[in-house]
């Protein structure tokens, strides 16, 4: 894997897949809209490596799997 995949920290927005530190696509506060939208949607990108995750939504809950970093679910 190439950098930055090797990091253990959250560096990518799990909704839009853009860097968390850079400017947001809309030019608003960084990823504020993404965070708000995430209240009603599961994550789509792995926050550690930016891969698109396999996401399954069940009536109660969801799971999101990155091939490299495993499966996460609702907090």
């Amino acid at each position: 894997m190439n950098a930055p995949n090797g990091t253990d920290t959250t560096v990518w927005c799990d909704r839009c897949g853009e860097p968390l530190t850079g400017a947001a696509p809309s030019g608003t506060a960084p990823h504020e809209a993404c965070a708000a939208a995430r209240e009603l949607e599961p994550p789509r990108f792995c926050p550690r490596c930016r891969r698109r995750m396999k996401v399954q939504v069940l009536p109660k809950g969801w799971s999101a799997t990155c091939v490299e970093h495993g499966t996460t679910g609702p907090a």
Binding site: P42, P59, K60, G61, W62
Partner: peptide
């Protein structure tokens, strides 16, 4: 509950 790819409010 949830929808197909998005989440709903709690049942």
């Amino acid at each position: 509950g949830n929808y197909l790819t998005t989440l709903g409010r709690s049942p």
